[in-house]
Amino acid sequence: MAADVRPAAAPQESPANGTGRRALGARRRPSTSRIIIVAALTLAALYFLIPAYWLAVAATKSLGGLYGSFGLWFSEPQLWANLTALFTHDGGVFLRWSANTLLYAGVGSVVATLLAASTGYVLAKFEFRGRDTVFNVVLAGVLLPGTALALPSFMLFTELGLSNTVWAILLPSMVSPFGVYLCRIYAAAAVPDALIEAARVDGAGEIRIFATIALRIMTPALVTVLLFQFVSIWNNFFLPLVMLSDDRLYPITLGLVTLNSISERVPETVGLVVTGSFVAVVPLAVMMIVLQRFWRTGLTEGGVKS
């Protein structure tokens, strides 16, 4: 389990939660209260996991089985047939949507993280006119939710001839004001001024100092920014919905909702929606669980402490 391995990559976690930490009150707690606690937690776990379990079971069923059998148990499993139907539907368009999602989330999150790093670093370590203005504007960007921007972006991008292109999704995905905010805090606290000065004395250029020294020190914050951005692009729906009309450019989310919207007329698509949802959820759910310690580290950095 990821949570058991206390990583060296997360130095800002408090030393108090080392591996050997005793559970709170472990010695004196009577066993009845322990049973109640575990029962309550198990109940909660069922609430969170049963829908995902239902999806995994439903993805193996035929259309008849989906409606005709009890939802929480298997009935004539045919996962392979369902996957074949999904990936061959409409000339393999689902594969295309998956590739698009990977492209948007992969490229978008990597570029957004690098730009957040350089911007956060400059805002933390350089003094120049307009620095506070820049930071305040970025902060306003943090407070403005992405959905509030989708329609305005569509209007502007249409005017610029960029709507219904990959750039309509990629360009907004490359900007993470929250990432800049996080990187600025992290760079200010973790990158020592003396180190930068020493590198300058050695004759290193500013760009090289950033690329070779600062980036490495800022890695824990960058991982968090990368994860947040990756997931938020993967989950994005409103922006592609308004921007894209060519279904060859759709990400999985928009593709599945489009399939779902014709399911009243074409009942077979219900099976595609179920199997497609399952296929779309698996990689991210695995990533979520394996990488959960990085989320925690990032969250404590996010200015939550006051």
């Binding site: 389990m1 058991d4 591996t19 559970a23 009150g25 575990v38 969170f48 995902a52």
Partner: peptide, 23 residues
């Protein structure tokens, strides 16, 4: 109140839905 190992397992279960896109 749980040991790290069990807490980690439960936490992972609770966190899983966050990986499911809203739509």
């Amino acid at each position: 109140t749980l040991s790290d190992r069990w807490a980690g397992l439960f936490r992972a279960g609770f966190f899983l839905p966050y990986g499911v896109p809203g739509v």
